[in-house]
């Protein structure tokens, strides 16, 4: 499904942060991408989603054979990509309901489907709100404005539930969550797992992986995947920290 080959990227004309990432994700799989601060794991998520602050300097990334890197961010969303933001953006003045319905309909339009009207959409929302334990009243609030950290992350999972992406990337979704919020978010993600979709969980800590059990774990260091393995690799990282992972020589700078 997702095929990343030798991907290199940088931000603002600086040195490459990603120095050649190769990763294959198949339908039905959950991959965890772990690594210390500055290893490039969030950059990978941002580059795949098309954040214009990042510049791809080499390599390729395709989703179902389509060149992701040639697409605008909205086209990537239409193609089935979804990134849950580490820091969801506040948009005062735009209601959650309107925002989500716009996104939902734009994706439907891109697939030649009819738009749904506000009432139909409310039905869809009601089913999904329960998934992340949110009150319907939050639909009338401005997108993320004044939300607590936990509410913002749950709102990301709500969006994911409504938009039903083929590939979801969770960018440090666990950061700043207490254990209850973490459990709600993880349960939401688990319930959305289907044989025809896939998830990449980007995280610094192992604790999220107690709740979202990955099929594969990849360790990033200085812009490269330095180790890949099964879920037991995450436990090993938790126990030993990141120090025992071999750091590529040129990354010591």
């Amino acid at each position: 499904m997702l095929d990343i080959r030798n991907l290199q990227a940088r931000v603002g004309g600086g040195a490459d942060i990603l120095k050649g990432i190769t990763l294959h994700v198949n339908a039905g799989e959950v991959h965890a991408v772990m690594g210390p601060n500055g290893s490039g794991k969030s950059t990978l998520a941002q580059v795949l989603a098309g954040n214009p602050a990042y510049e791809v300097t080499g390599g390729s990334a395709t989703l179902d054979g389509n060149d992701l890197l040639a697409m605008q961010p909205e086209e990537r969303a239409h193609a089935g990509l979804f990134m849950a933001f580490q820091y969801p953006v506040e948009i005062p003045g735009v209601s959650n309901a309107y925002f989500l319905r716009s996104a939902y309909n734009e994706i439907r339009k891109a697939h030649g489907q009819d738009e749904v009207d506000p009432l139909e959409f409310l039905d869809i929302m009601e089913k999904n709100l329960a998934l992340v334990d949110m009150e319907p009243s939050m639909l009338n609030r401005s997108v993320n404005a004044g939300f607590s950290g936990g509410e913002k992350k749950r709102n990301e999972i709500l969006q994911m539930a409504v938009l039903r992406p083929r590939l979801a990337i969770l960018d440090e979704t666990d950061s700043g969550l207490d254990i209850d919020a973490l459990r709600i978010v993880a349960e939401g993600v688990n319930k959305l797992r289907r044989p025809d979709n896939a998830t990449i969980v980007v995280t610094h800590y192992q604790r999220l992986l107690n709740h979202i059990v990955p099929d594969f774990v990849h360790v990033l260091s200085a812009g490269r995947i330095v180790k890949s393995g099964g879920k037991e690799l995450a436990l090993e990282l938790e126990e030993k920290g990141y120090d025992w992972i071999e750091t590529p020589a040129e990354a010591v700078a």
Partner: peptide, 14 residues
């Protein structure tokens, strides 16, 4: 710009 990117990443055109 971040808000624009956020909306686009959800499929809303530029």
């Amino acid at each position: 710009e971040m808000a624009l990117f956020y909306m686009k990443s959800r499929g809303i055109g530029a």
